[in-house]
Design a protein around this nucleic acid. Structure first.
Lengths: 165, 165
DNA sequence: CGCAAATAAATAGCCAGCCTAGTATTCCGT
DNA sequence: ACGGAATACTAGGCTGGCTATTTATTTGCG
């Protein structure tokens, strides 16, 4: 779904209390970051001609591969929270697109292993590598104190978001 | 679309350089926050029985209303980046769900005005109000220096994300 | 003024990607 | 060794996008 929306959305949710400028500024910055990130993901998805789920899947498969782990359709289904039927269709799409291959599981003859192709690895790195490098550089240019402040804040916000689950 | 995924995704994209722990911690915290936020949005959407676009639409309509602006299907179409046809269908859904009403545009007889119902306002605030309040409290408990550090960092990361558009 | 082009919303019909249900095969605990 | 669980797949349905077209109205140009 269109996470690429609401460009003029700023200022509604936290804009009603002028006297709280410091906190509001932080939340506005956080919202701007979120919007920029959503837009980036959309661009990536468009340039690779994939939907969001496919992109998450290929990333997960590549990451598992890199960690030396074997991964199958069942794992993808669980991780992506989609049915095994949809997972079959997803793998069909990605296989047809040349991003991954099926191979029989070495010991369980019911199961498959999903292997990313070299092309997938190349294309993902090509698309995302430079940006990630610059994000890392930005993060590393922080002093330890700054990094600690930001990390603690984000963790606290995460805790708030998860608190009414 | 499944933005509610990849719980085990941590550690791949920024995990390859152990000696850069400070920066990596920040990025990991940022990623955890993003995941928590996506999950929260999904819960909201589920509890209101809406898809993401519908939720963005109702928020936009409410925000415009609050700002005293008149808004029509055409505006929604533009803001959400969906076709006018899809917008008609979206408004049908939201109207049937009791979230908004159509009314003729006061001067342009081709056009409509989209008005949120009181129920929409109530339901959105009910669902999101408490959490937003706590997020704001968290942000306001920061010292000005901390708020500045976090704001600058997020703005810089936003700039990086937008730099290869 | 009068009419052509532009604009707003809706309708019809298509497609992608999700779902549930059901099936064949294989695994494994008792 | 057998029955239930697990894996991948197929079939068929639903949702929410899309394009193309239609209808009503407004705008603007000569």
């Amino acid at each position: 779904m269109p996470e690429h929306a609401n460009p003029t959305g700023a200022g509604y949710w936290y804009g009603q209390s002028p006297e709280t400028a410091g906190g509001v500024d932080v939340l506005n910055a956080l919202r701007a970051y979120r919007a920029a990130e959503a837009a980036m993901r959309r661009r990536t998805r468009d340039s690779m001609r994939m939907n969001e789920t496919d992109l998450l899947a290929i990333r997960y498969v590549m990451q598992a591969r890199q960690a030396g782990k074997s991964i199958g359709p069942k794992d993808l289904s669980r991780v992506l929270s989609i049915s095994t039927a949809s997972t079959t269709a997803l793998i069909d799409r990605l296989q047809k697109g040349g991003y991954l291959t099926r191979r029989p599981h070495p010991t369980d003859r019911r199961a498959l292993e999903i292997i990313p192709t070299e092309n997938a690895d190349h294309e993902v790195r090509e698309t995302l590598g430079k940006m990630h490098r610059r994000m890392l550089e930005t993060a590393e240019s922080l002093t330890p104190e700054e990094a600690g402040t930001i990390t603690r804040f984000l963790q606290e916000m995460t805790r708030v978001l998860e608190s009414d689950r």
